Computed example of a mutant assay.
Amino acid sequence: MSKNNNAEPMQPEVQAAGLKLDVNVRPIAPMGNLLAFANVTVGDCFKIDGFRICSGENGLYVNMPATQDKQGKWRDVCWPVTADFRKQLNDALIEGYGVAIESLQATLDATKGAADKPSLSGALKENAGKVKSQPAKATPSKNEQAR
């Protein structure tokens, strides 16, 4: 596993064909079949942004980073050269998506009961309101204190 400095969930690191793949997946609220964006750092020296993880009839799949040309057609800007590396890259990205979703689910589960628990600031505000509504006691004068 790789350590990210951006307080993002840990993402898988995969050794593929002699290359280390550090995968970072960012799930989004689904937009059509698009589920997440991802990037991959290859061998700690080359980063590729713009992968898209999508869902289809046959399950999850990965779209390579692409750009739109003047005719409006989308063209991949990079792609694996071998079928073996394509499979390893796709598997790493799909696994990274699973890890990211599990992390989000754990965070959701941990915060579920937080709305039911009274907050410290809420309790302080409530007590401040009670104190303000109490009648003020008269402070004794100096002469009364001396007695």
Rank of each mutant, 00 (worst) to 15 (best):
P80N: 00
V42L: 03
E8D: 15
D69I: 14
D44H: 10
V25Q: 00
N143P: 01
A115Q: 13
R147L: 15
V81R: 11
N143K: 10
I48C: 09
K47P: 00
V81T: 08
V62D: 01
M1Y: 11
L120R: 10
E57L: 14
A138K: 12
D109P: 00
G96W: 01
V81L: 04
N58K: 15
L104H: 15
L108Q: 13
A17I: 04
G98E: 13
V14Y: 09
E102T: 08
I48R: 00
G96S: 04
Q15L: 13
A29W: 03
P65M: 00
F46D: 07
P135S: 14
S103Q: 13
N24F: 04
M10F: 14
E95S: 14
T107W: 12
D116W: 05
K130N: 14
R75M: 10
S2L: 04
S121Q: 04
K3Y: 07
K130C: 12
K112N: 03
A16H: 01
K125C: 13
Q15G: 10
N63W: 12
R26E: 04
R52M: 08
Q11P: 07
N5S: 12
S103P: 04
V81Y: 04
P12A: 13
G122Q: 05
K112E: 12
A83D: 06
K73E: 15
K70V: 07
T67D: 02
E144L: 02
K70G: 09
S133P: 14
G72I: 15
S55C: 11
L108M: 10
D76R: 06
Q68H: 02
V25H: 00
A16I: 00
L108R: 11
G59S: 07
P140W: 13
Q11K: 09
V62I: 15
K132V: 07
K112D: 07
G32C: 13
K70E: 14
P12W: 07
A115M: 02
N127C: 05
V131E: 03
Y97W: 09
E126Q: 13
D91G: 11
N63K: 14
T111A: 10
A92K: 01
A36P: 04
D49L: 02
A146I: 10
I101P: 04
A115W: 04
K117P: 03
Q71G: 13
P65N: 02
T82G: 12
L93F: 06
F46I: 03
D44R: 03
Q145Y: 06
G59A: 08
K3M: 08
A100Q: 05
F37S: 01
A100R: 06
K117C: 02
D49Q: 10
Q134N: 08
R52L: 10
Q88P: 01
G50S: 08
N143I: 08
A7S: 06
F51C: 00
D69N: 14
N5M: 11
N6K: 06
N39L: 04
A36M: 06
L60G: 05
Q11S: 15
A146G: 05
Y97A: 01
T139C: 00
K112Q: 11
V131G: 01
P135K: 14
R147Y: 12
M31P: 00
M10P: 11
N58T: 14
P135H: 09
E95F: 07
Q134I: 03
N39K: 03
K47A: 11
T67N: 06
T82D: 12
E57Q: 15
A83R: 02
P30V: 08
V23S: 00
G59V: 09
N4S: 09
K3G: 10
E13N: 05
